[in-house]
């Protein structure tokens, strides 16, 4: 395809894509940055894998409970919350709340974020409530993760 044809195509495209503003073409500039990042990631993975190989403990034994049992780090906050919440609410058992809140309610809220936050602004200074709630959620997760490690 000749250059002029390409230009014409791009011109036509512009009308249909008002979202796009100035920028670097995907190829080669953007892709080059991607390749650099990819090499960095692949390199760190190989490095980590060589220094800290994946572990393998003793074979599973259903009659010997080991201590401590840690789940993967990204589930720790669920355990932490379960340990943290010891209060029954009316007829609802504390355990039930400890299980339901971090899994059902938390994910439910996450799914609903765009429908709860009706503020159209993307300027961080005009989104104080959303940002504050986000920071609180983050701190909460960090705290319960910490809690699960300390109160093992």
């Amino acid at each position: 395809m000749s250059l002029t044809e390409t230009e014409k195509k791009k011109g036509e495209k512009k009308d249909r894509e008002p979202v796009r503003i100035t920028g670097l073409p995907f190829f080669p500039h953007f892709l080059l940055r991607e390749v650099v990042v990819m090499c960095f990631i692949a390199g760190s993975l190989i490095l980590m894998a060589s220094i800290y190989p994946a572990g393998l403990l003793k074979p599973a034994d259903p009659f010997d409970t080991p201590t401590p049992i840690y789940p993967e780090w990204y589930f720790l906050y669920v355990f932490g919350f379960l340990k943290f919440w010891t209060w029954d609410i009316g007829p609802i058992d504390a355990k039930m709340i400890g299980v339901t809140l971090p899994m059902v309610l938390w994910y439910g809220l996450l799914f609903m974020v765009p429908f709860i936050d009706r503020n159209p602004s993307i300027d961080i200074r005009k989104r104080k409530v959303a940002v504050a709630l986000g920071v609180i959620a983050l701190l909460g997760i960090l705290y319960f993760t910490y809690f699960s490690i300390v109160h093992h």
């Binding site: 393998l56 403990l57 599973a60 259903p62 049992i69 789940p71 355990k95 039930m96 299980v99 339901t100």
Partner: peptide, 22 residues
């Protein structure tokens, strides 16, 4: 999947928790 002690017991606890969701 590796079926070592950690695998077995973490799964036991994890499925136990998931199983007690109302």
């Amino acid at each position: 999947l590796p079926w070592d002690q950690l695998a077995f017991w973490a799964t036991k606890i994890g499925t136990g928790i998931a199983g007690s969701i109302p």
